[in-house]
Design a protein around this nucleic acid. Structure first.
Lengths: 217, 217
DNA sequence: GACATATGTCACCAGTCGGTAATATAACGC
DNA sequence: GCGTTATATTACCGACTGGTGACATATGTC
């Protein structure tokens, strides 16, 4: 990016580069974000990112050692994946005292909300499905760790005798799939993915399943 | 593709083009399939398809009016989506007489098998998630119709009072997601996606849910 | 045989991609 | 002022993309 040193009076053809490494870095990082949100991971190349940032692409190599490095930097500073706290509904202590079925229901509702407000996360999840590379593998690893830690913390020592882990992951998989699809289609198998009412119906169905599988104490 | 007119005795440098439109068309169509299975929809371009078919890319334009036309021709002749019969386990009459919970369980098992043996379908499903275009929309429409027809035929007039449609679609979404992920990763949330045992566990969890939600009569 | 048509190959185009070297300019120390 | 370093731009490279026109060869008809 360049900026004019003078006003418009002198009709200055020359512009003055900013020459601020930190600002340039931030420009590039946020360009990844906006580009990812706008186009998805399609067209996420050095040229496009540099264009979006208004900066020369060579700086991607100088500051980040290439596009993977830049994307890694982007991923680090983004909360692209919901935290344990968020998946627990915002209050860990309170969450831990809930009966099992309510824990699961709260988790499902929180997970829906978390996905709904993260278009970038949905884009990255879609990305992971079709282009495995060293970056998506890293994001993958972080996510697997996070979700396993969450599961261990709250569901590990159940004595219901049912496969709680498989149940949680099935719900997570279904919600992930529907959230991603919602970016492309309005209806899936008759389910309305475009409106809040449609998602309320989905959440209700999940709750119904949970409360049938785990009868309240 | 070319083939030698003589044996190897004359050391023939020249090869003779086949000059059979139907064969060439088939070569191109099947090249789309194998390329889709090998690389997914990434690198599914005119150049790559022509290379895979061993044919010049200009024929794609001449015979199919471009890549979309070729892909449409490919999609028409493929059973890329399981039929109602297949989703019912192979015997419609028998299926229709099962109690509801067993219907659902059989559907889930059949759906898993159907996805497992269709790498192209998985690739296309992944494609639909990120690149909506006129082709994927068509496939989408076919699929939505098919799945709704199946649902209507067997589950419409339930009187359990629960949201059966949402339940079926949740299961379908979860299984679709896991099947697609299985092409990229071996483990999802602790679930083993790479082995038959892992999928048995998933199927068991689905059955568990079904039988809890819909108690056998 | 001659000719027209169907089929296939080749060569090229402009555009984009990831990547790099050479250069210009700003900022800072002296 | 001078020189050095940090920052950014320009210009280019080879490879690939989708797409097209000119050409070559085989097939079928008369």
């Amino acid at each position: 990016m360049t900026q004019s040193t003078w006003g418009n009076d002198m009709a200055p053809k020359k512009t003055v580069p900013l020459r601020d490494k930190q600002i340039t870095r931030r420009r590039l990082i946020s360009a990844v974000g906006s580009l990812l949100a706008k186009k998805g991971f399609k067209g996420l190349g050095v040229n496009a990112v540099a264009r979006e940032a208004g900066v020369d692409k060579v700086l991607i190599y100088r500051y980040f050692d290439g596009l993977p490095g830049l994307i890694a930097a982007f991923a680090q500073q983004e909360d692209f994946w919901p935290s344990t706290l968020e998946m627990a509904g915002g209050d860990l202590a309170q969450f831990s005292e809930l009966p099992l079925d309510e824990k699961l229901a709260l988790f499902a509702a929180s997970f829906i909300q978390a996905l709904k407000k993260r278009p970038l996360t949905r884009a990255i999840m879609a990305w992971e499905m079709i282009e495995p590379n060293e970056l998506t593998e890293e994001l993958e690893r972080v996510r697997e760790e996070s979700i396993m830690a969450f599961f261990q913390m709250f569901f590990a020592k159940d004595r219901t005798g049912i496969d709680l882990q498989a149940l949680v992951m099935l719900v997570g998989a279904a919600l992930s799939y529907l959230a991603i699809r919602a970016d492309n289609i309005d209806v899936y198998g008759g389910l309305d993915l475009a409106t809040d009412q449609g998602w309320d119906r989905i959440a209700s169905a999940v709750n119904m399943v949970i409360h049938h599988v785990i009868p309240p104490a």
